[in-house]
Design a protein around this nucleic acid. Sequence first.
DNA 1: TTGTAAGCGTTATCAG
DNA 2: CTGATAACGCTTACAA
Lengths: 360, 360
Amino acid sequence: MSFAVRPATQQLRPPGRTIINTLKSSTINDVARLAGVSKRTVSRVINGSQAVGESTRVKVEKVIAELNYSPSPQARGLASSRSYLLGLIYDNPDALYLDDVQRGVLEICSQLGYELVVHPCRYRSETLVQDCFAFINRSKLDGVIILPPVSELDHLASALKQAERPYVRLTSVLLDETYHSVVSDDRAAAAEMARYFAQLGHQNIAFISGPQRFKSSTERMEGFQLGLSAYGIKLRPDWIVEGNNSFETGIECAQQLLSGTDKPTAIFANNDQMAAGVLKAAHDLGIKVPDQLSVAGFDDNLLASRIIPALTTIRRSVRQMAQLAATKIIMDIEGNRHAAGHVAAKVAPTLVVRESTKSL
Amino acid sequence: MSFAVRPATQQLRPPGRTIINTLKSSTINDVARLAGVSKRTVSRVINGSQAVGESTRVKVEKVIAELNYSPSPQARGLASSRSYLLGLIYDNPDALYLDDVQRGVLEICSQLGYELVVHPCRYRSETLVQDCFAFINRSKLDGVIILPPVSELDHLASALKQAERPYVRLTSVLLDETYHSVVSDDRAAAAEMARYFAQLGHQNIAFISGPQRFKSSTERMEGFQLGLSAYGIKLRPDWIVEGNNSFETGIECAQQLLSGTDKPTAIFANNDQMAAGVLKAAHDLGIKVPDQLSVAGFDDNLLASRIIPALTTIRRSVRQMAQLAATKIIMDIEGNRHAAGHVAAKVAPTLVVRESTKSL
DNA sequence: TTGTAAGCGTTATCAG
DNA sequence: CTGATAACGCTTACAA
């Protein structure tokens, strides 16, 4: 059977037509028929098999392009038990972080033909593991990317490992093989903040930590303490208070810290939300920031640059971490675990100095 | 062939085992075999067909529960050309809004057995429609939910309509059939803000609009003007300035508004981001908010309650809108377009008074 | 290098 | 009310 090749003058058609063509998708059979080869050969071309003659490949690719053909992920999945779907598992109150992650992951996904399915869940749920597996199985996800703090749950990870389901965890300390991990070095970042505070001349420094059950919290706290100790500064135990990362607890912790007779001259909070709470409390107490009190946060979320005074904070390149995670997981899915292990696993956050800190 | 029904004493097993069971999912054939009926009958039960004997149904359901069986969406999709996947199309700079939407949609999705696939896109792209269709076709999405401002693009909607692909648009004015729409009444909300300003005694009022190409911007502006006119107040033309909804343009617009000799005593901005910019500009100019200037925004995003002074603003129940959208689209997908048209299509935003406004 | 045929787990058709 | 049997669009042994 022979076909006249349609000239590429599609511009002349009404735009609606093109769209409809795109909509009613053709199948592998159409391609095979038009190219005068077997299904199997088309399949080989689609999957980039080496065992295809150059001229055959060109011919098939041409037909594919003409037909605007793209294989059905459903049929593909059914036949090969893959779905070309990645899952994103999180229980994250920070919408900004989440959005960054999604964009980063999607940049890679769309290049490699995967889609992203989102799944908020409850970190503290008894049935978290079951929930996640139900999610994964329901849509036969090829793999999942897990965001903190859920990513810190070792029992989830080991269940995934046991089930041989590819996964990558975004964490703030290495908890798993490098092909399962992308970590932001929160410890080093907090140490850098300590150094900055010390060089500003602060001695009386307070720290508002996040929940101690989160690794990210302990990493930041320890990094901060370590950094300070290099300058011979030690945090007073009563100037270490714990919040839950919310704006409200930031206010409460700050009130506690700033109510005594001797007050700290600088406060480092575990995240920007709480730092914003500190700003609020200080404002209400009539304490001027940064003149009487320096304040810093962690995350560099939207708030940080909008608030008055703008927050000195730590910026993590969440987007980049997400890209790395997506790259790794797709490599793993496609049988390249070894290579995935060699993709960068650690991202260094950076200090962003704004208006909320000042030398003594 | 006959099978002893396994007693339901799964609790006795080690928990790991349960998970693995859950992972390796059984098929419709297993269910059919164990229940001693045909595949077809199991399929009927799954899909809630009426044409199944009560005793048969019970028997099958029992086996399904025991096996923890759930049908493969891939196979289902292949056979029935449905994917049980919903798409979310947006080009939204506001991560908070996006997160709210996702949560709202997912609450409904998970109840009804659908998953959500996300797709950021570029509002201004020439190839937007093609991009969206490629996205839809690639994963054979059952339908899409479109967020503003992309949702305002009529050519996208009509292409979708022509292709008979279910969709729902979240907009700020009714642009489509009610089964294709969930709208937040921004006009009424802005009018309420006007009333509030007027009752506070303000006469010299300025407005920072969003881009006039967005319906949401024109709706809010017209609503505000209408509300004001009820009190005999008219906006001075030079006190209507246009920003692009960013913090930065909020600053610029405010500088312009506040640099003259006679200044407005109140500024209403099209969104919270710009209102935050106004706060910043006022602060830098030494103008006290709310003592010398009242400021209000729109959205009630995270920023609004964290900033100092906390912003008076308009809260939209985004979550609820998202739920309605998901409900409608699933009804439409499942052939119940008529019912979808009768689900509430309009959500009323509400005024939230905080610290940034004050009576004259 | 290429093709044939047998699934993958559902739903749909059409009898009974 | 129930059950064979043929799709659905693709991959994968197994040949050729």
